[in-house]
């Protein structure tokens, strides 16, 4: 994807979403009273502003002459400043997102302690930290600390899981003096 298309994509996406949401305002516009601004007025105003901004930006990028990098930009890149050209690891990012998504249902099934210990360990390993002893100790001690602080001190009711995992959480809570 060239630079121009890359610059247009976010605005085009926002324009499409805004247009869709504008269409949805019709469902609550009918609830307004005659002679008064209805519940659709404010969101419509915001959406119009959003669509106009996106349209202008798309036109500006599309019609602008191709930009040549300035001498300073070249010099900065030469010295490694700015991270536009820094190496990126999309697989790492994707793994992080998947791991984070799995953590949410994992917490409900396994309970906070087990899910968190696994999440922390997996996150560190995926993040290319390879001292496995440190990973194991940090994730278990860290999870225990979170359980203690949030359940015992801040009184947050963290998920305890289902089935056998619930028994693990309950035993752990009894061990930490959490009732």
């Amino acid at each position: 994807m060239n630079a121009r298309a890359k610059a247009i994509v976010p605005y085009a996406a926002m324009l499409a979403i805004a247009a869709f949401l504008y269409g949805r305002t019709a469902s609550f516009a009918a609830l307004g009273r005659p002679g008064q601004l209805g519940p659709d007025f404010w969101p419509k105003a915001v959406l119009v502003l959003l669509m106009v901004t996106c349209a202008i930006e798309i036109l500006r990028v599309a019609l602008a002459p191709p930009a040549k990098p300035s001498a300073l930009a070249n010099a900065k890149q030469g010295h490694g400043e700015g991270d536009d050209h820094a190496p990126r690891y999309p697989v790492l990012l994707l793994s992080g997102i998947v791991l984070t998504i799995l953590y949410v249902p994992g917490m409900q099934v396994l309970g906070f302690f087990l899910a968190t210990a696994i999440y922390l360990a997996a996150f560190m390993v995926v993040g290319r930290y390879r001292r496995y002893g440190v990973v194991a100790v940090t994730s278990i001690v860290g999870s225990l600390a979170f359980v203690f602080v949030f359940m015992k001190i801040v009184y947050v009711s963290l998920p305890i899981g289902v089935g056998p995992f619930q028994s693990v959480s309950t035993a752990l809570m009894a061990l930490l003096g959490i009732h």
Partner: peptide, 16 residues
Amino acid sequence: LPEAVTSAFVALFCFV
């Protein structure tokens, strides 16, 4: 502390 370790805990703080 390695960045992967601190980042894991930051993510956890976000959830909690």
